[in-house]
Amino acid sequence: MFSELFLPVLMVIFMLVIGGYAVAVLDRLVASALGTPQAGRVWLAPMSRGAWLLTQHANATEAPDWRAWRLAPALYLALAASGLAVVPWSASLVATDLVTSVVLWGSVEALATVVIFLHGWSANSLLALIGGYRYVALGLSYILISMFVLIGVALPAESLQFTQVVASQEGLWNVIRQPLGLPLFLIVGLGMTFWGPLNLADSTDLAGGTASEISGPPRLVWDMARAGMLVAFSGVAATVFLGGWLGPWLPGPVWMSLKMLAVLSVLLLLGRLLPRLAPERCVTLMWVVLLPLSFIDLVWAGIGALL
């Protein structure tokens, strides 16, 4: 009972905490490497910001939908946790080895759209609502691109299970077998965590968007949830494209952590380097350029599976 129920839960919570902290530290390191001075020491600053948020007063707007407003950050964190729960660390070390874990990750992306819209809508505030609407308009295209890319990696594995997808990369990693897949998937990752160039839901032109009205502990949960989602996403990307736990000399979980850190660093670097897109241009880019590219990726994967 203990090992079946509590161990996976503890594992996921541990990954969320460590992963969220790693995102905050890495982002500060990347920023100072690129020449943006960071206040405070890199290793302590995330914790002091967290402690400061905990002591702050939680803002209130006029007649918000309280339950939804307070639940939305927690639900987004829960979605990040569900994503992390299906990421395998070795052939046997995985919190939940669901046979349809690839589809479950697709549902996490779809439900994230709901939660982000709920977060923007429930505050009963104009800029937050616009942020929520923006995400719904864009989120649908992220989901579609991600699904085609993920079907592509499920084809050679002949399975919808992440452990099988990793096993199918024993000879050749998917990043080489399907060259379009990882770049497309990274864009989806930036999109669904609304990070960097694709931060349109919580962007500064909306004074913070869906998060414009939250402060104090709910703000802390929302920030942690976004970081947790980025960690979960990099876990999935490392699993389906970079061969997961596969690698010589070192044990599987170590390889997996290194690959996740590599994906995280690339995402955070892109987040700092690229300028933010205008939302309407972004929709055009998604539907006219990236979605057809994901079709090509899928056809490529299909031909590869037939040969």
Partner: peptide, 24 residues
């Protein structure tokens, strides 16, 4: 029914988002 259960999540998430938009 592991596929159907998970398929319910993403099918209905997208459907209900669209529904909420139409409501507004």
């Amino acid at each position: 029914a592991e596929y159907l259960g998970v398929a319910m999540f993403f099918m209905m998430a997208v459907e209900m988002t669209v529904m909420a938009l139409f409501m507004v």
